[in-house]
Nucleic acid binder design. Sequence first.
DNA 1: CTGCATATGTTATATTATTACATGGAGAAG
DNA 2: CTTCTCCATGTAATAATATAACATATGCAG
Lengths: 160, 160
Amino acid sequence: MDAIGFERHDHSSCIRAGLDTVERACTDRGLQLTPVRRRVLELLLEGHRAMGAYEILDILRDEGMGSQPPVAYRALDFLVSHGFAHKVERLNAFVACMHPDQNHTPAFLICRACDAVAEAHADPARGFLGQAVRDTGFVVEQAVVEAVGLCPSCAAEAHA
Amino acid sequence: MDAIGFERHDHSSCIRAGLDTVERACTDRGLQLTPVRRRVLELLLEGHRAMGAYEILDILRDEGMGSQPPVAYRALDFLVSHGFAHKVERLNAFVACMHPDQNHTPAFLICRACDAVAEAHADPARGFLGQAVRDTGFVVEQAVVEAVGLCPSCAAEAHA
DNA sequence: CTGCATATGTTATATTATTACATGGAGAAG
DNA sequence: CTTCTCCATGTAATAATATAACATATGCAG
C-alpha cells in the first residue's frame, strides 16, 4: 500500500510517467488514446487534483478540442472505465490514477479544507471489508473508499 | 460488524425500531424531529433502499408537505448530518441508517443489477485504511466504503 | 412585547450528466 | 477501389441533481 498526493515530488516527471504508462497500456490492450483522451489525462495529471468535468471542458473548449459536455464526459468515461482515472463521487470530480497498471481498490483522502485529494489503495484481499460482507453473499466487483478529513498541511494550520 | 439489507426480516418492525431509535436520539440530543424530517426518515425506512431526493420530494408533494427541492434536501441534510441516514454518493441517493446510535464507517454494498443497497460497517480502528494512510499524516474524520457488485439473489440468477 | 434562533415556504438558478442524432475516419470484406 | 462497419467525435437539446437567496412562520428567552 502506498499513497501519492501530499508529499512533494518531481511533478513534470510524474506527468510524463503517467502518460507513458497509459500509452503503453493502450498499445498493449488495443485501446485508442486519441488526442482528446490524451489531453484530458494530461490535464488531470497536471492538475494533480480532482477536477470537474466542466472545468476540463472549459479548457478543451479554449484549446479548440470540443465544446459540448459529451466531449469531456466521453473522454473521462474512457479513462475511468479502463482504470486510468477515477471518479471521486464525493466531489463529482475526476483524478488521474496513480497506479493505472495494477488492479486495486482506490482509497481517496479528501481534504475538506483545501480539496486536495490523495490516492492510496486498499487491498480487498486483506479484507478491509471484513467478514460480514462475505457473510452476506454479496459479490464485490469493485469498491472505493472515500475518506474526508484534513491533509497534513491543513491539519498543521488548524493546530496553529 | 454486521450487515443488514439482503436477508429477509420483519420489515414493519424494523421501520418502527428505526423511528424509535431516532426519536430517542433526538430527544437526548435536543434535536427537533419535525413532521417533514420524520416523514422523510420513514420513507427511507419503508423503501429500505437508496432513494433520490426528487423521488422523496414527489411523495412529499403528493402528501402536501412541500413541493420544492429545498424541502427534501433540508430534511435529508438533517438526517445525514446527524447520522440518521447516509448519502450513497455513487447513486446520488439516500438510505436510512441501520445503526444510527453508534459511530461507524458505513460500507455500502450496491447491487448493480437490482440497485438494492445493504449497509455493513467497517471498523476504522481495525485499520481498514491501512498503514499508508497513517503514514501520510492525513487526519481522517469520516470515511465511507462503496462497493458495487451483485447481491445474493442477482448473483444466483447470473449463475443460472 | 421584542429579539433571537430555528424551521419552513418559494422563486430562481447553478451544477452535473445524459439522450439522441449527425458526421467523419480507418480498416476489413468484397 | 468501394462499401460496410466500427469506433470516435461534433452538436443540440434536455434531464437530473443541488443550492442560493430571500420571505414567512413559530417557539422561546429576556
